[in-house]
């Protein structure tokens, strides 16, 4: 603050109308683009509340009377309720499983050096840059063999595994930063390794756990490719594949489609607004390290 004030004097003297104009231009650009970013999402929400006939007559209008019937029909008639339940089950289970195994591995790799630990870390982190979709054909036959094809548990396993590199990456760095004395003190008190981990270390990495879980949640909730290939039975579709099925069946019914899009998007928007910090931390975990 004080540094800013000390240079502001001479600077302000030099720039005059030009800088003021620049400031206005910047504000126009910033708020103008905010409109571009938000308008489609607002249109989606507004249109989901309008009857089909109105949408066809004028794609831009506001709802005369908000019509929640679109949601009721999308939820039951178009099976969005079922897709939603599948998405919740798969995403939540996979996030919990993936984060649990990651935090265990990250603890050992972040706190201890043992023969092969460096190599192991590189092996796990390599997954950050691997396009895992390219392994889909062998995954398909592996699942066929294990009876996991067309099963939500199969999706849970691939998803949990796909979360390991990112989870280990963020959590290892976090475990390394914890102060040294903690472990010593706990040991003197007679705590074993598992108690040390569960009662002392785990509560301390809670912020990083939240970041990892939210980030995974967004990725998995939105994933389309794995269920497209691995799930055949429409009763087991998750929301993104359900949307494509719906689009081919009800393609001409825009109001229902808008309702379906909102149903798919709303949980993420709510999560983001409730936990902006953690989501942003997850998205930017790659820089400044």
């Amino acid at each position: 603050m004080s540094a800013e004030a000390s240079v502001a004097g001479p600077r302000r003297a030099r720039r005059g109308a030009g800088a003021a104009l620049g400031g206005v231009a910047a504000r126009v650009l910033l708020w103008g683009y905010a409109a571009v970013a938000l308008a489609p999402l607002v249109l989606m929400a507004v249109s989901s509340l309008r009857p089909e006939a109105e949408l066809r007559a004028d794609p831009l209008g506001l709802p005369t009377i908000p019509e929640f019937g679109n949601y009721a029909r999308a939820w039951t008639e178009a099976d969005f309720g079922g897709y939603f339940a599948n998405s919740v089950f798969v995403t939540v289970t996979a996030v919990l499983l993936g984060t649990a195994v990651s935090v265990l591995a990250a603890y050992a790799l972040g706190r201890y050096t043992f023969p092969g630990s460096g190599l192991l870390l590189i092996y796990l982190l390599a997954g950050l840059m691997i396009p895992i979709r390219l392994g889909i054909v062998p995954v398909f036959y592996l699942f066929d063999m294990l009876g996991l094809l067309d099963s939500l548990w199969g999706l849970v396993l691939v998803y949990a595994a796909s979360g390991v590199p990112f989870g280990v990456f963020v959590l290892t760095a976090f475990f390394r930063q914890l102060p040294a004395g903690l472990a010593e003190a706990a040991r003197i008190d007679g705590a074993g390794e598992f108690r040390l981990f569960g009662q002392i270390m785990l509560p301390l990495v809670r912020p990083a756990l939240a970041t990892v879980m939210l980030f995974q949640f967004i990725q998995l909730w939105n994933d389309f490719f794995f269920p497209l290939v691995l799930i055949r039975d429409q009763d087991r579709y998750t929301l993104p594949v359900g949307l494509t099925a719906f689009f081919t069946e009800y393609g001409l019914n825009q109001s229902l489609l808008y309702a379906g899009l909102v149903i798919t998007t709303l949980p993420l928007v709510l999560l983001f607004l409730l936990a902006t910090r953690q989501v942003v931390d997850g998205l930017t975990a790659g820089v400044n390290r």
Binding site: L38, N222, P240, L243, L261, T264, T265, L268, V269
Partner: peptide
């Protein structure tokens, strides 16, 4: 916000 929305949506 648009970055969080599924590419399918």
């Amino acid at each position: 916000l648009p970055h969080l929305v599924s590419p399918i949506v």
